[in-house]
């Protein structure tokens, strides 16, 4: 597979951003996942953190221990050595979701917008393969790609001030899961009992960029507890 980055550019004096694409697509995601795994395993001198986004891999370094020019060359050499390697594959994670009702207060509105029955919205959402594009916004918050086009919907005009922890919400062509109760502008269609983030776990986030998520409808968020992990 092609792992040649489009560019490697600095973000301040302590981070290099390796860019693989400009949009969201499967080939870019696979290149990002492979590069993330490879650069993490390389343990380049002075590098303190590696973080994938939809189309980039950020390499955070200690500016007293690494020179950005040398580091950029080392990153390119490392990625060249991976050309032709098998694509990285993520874990498959099942997430139980109680759709609608108090757990998914926006399900009816999403159904009306999509001109579908609420049951059909649930069926489409649960039938799709969702790939974790990145973790961001808040610790453990996954941006999931793969929302069926029939369910695409703009963000809420007015963000909710309080979205409960575990809420499964959609906007544009993405699904997100709120790790903690927080404000949010996406449409909440359900809720999961799975903990997206636990500081006592390592890694603390349940999901990683590249993982494949399948949503499993359940009757209530308590009917499929953490025991299902």
């Amino acid at each position: 597979m092609a792992l040649s980055p489009l560019t490697i550019e600095p973000l301040g004096d302590a981070c290099l951003v390796v860019r693989f694409g400009t949009g969201i697509d499967a080939a870019t995601s696979r290149a990002v996942a492979a590069a993330t795994a490879s650069l993490a395993a390389a343990a380049l001198p002075g590098v303190v953190d590696i973080a994938p986004t939809f189309n980039t891999v950020a390499v955070v370094f200690d500016p007293l221990r690494a020179d950005p020019g040398h580091l950029s060359a080392a990153i390119q050499a490392r990625l060249r050595s991976l050309e032709g390697a098998a694509p990285a594959t993520g874990a498959i994670v099942e997430i139980p979701v109680a759709y609608g009702g108090d757990d998914g207060p926006d399900l009816a509105a999403v159904a009306a917008y999509a001109r579908l029955d609420p049951e059909e919205v649930v069926r489409l959402h649960a039938a799709a393969d969702h790939v974790v594009g990145m973790i961001g916004f808040a610790p453990g918050f996954p941006y999931l790609l793969g929302l069926p086009a029939a369910l695409a919907i703009p963000r809420r005009a007015t963000p909710r001030t309080c979205v409960p922890a575990g809420s499964v919400a959609i906007a544009e062509r993405q699904t997100g899961i709120y790790p903690r109760t927080s404000p949010g502008g996406w449409h909440v269609i359900g809720r999961t009992p799975r903990a997206m983030f636990d500081a006592d776990r390592d890694p603390p986030a349940l999901l990683r960029a590249g993982d494949l998520v399948r949503f499993v409808p359940v009757a209530s968020p308590t009917s499929a507890g953490e025991g299902s992990r």
């Binding site: 950020a58 955070v60 610790p139 918050f141 986030a205 960029a209």
Partner: peptide, 9 residues
């Protein structure tokens, strides 16, 4: 903390 950006930390 370093090393946990991929978990959003």
């Amino acid at each position: 903390r370093t090393g946990y950006r991929s978990s959003g930390v």
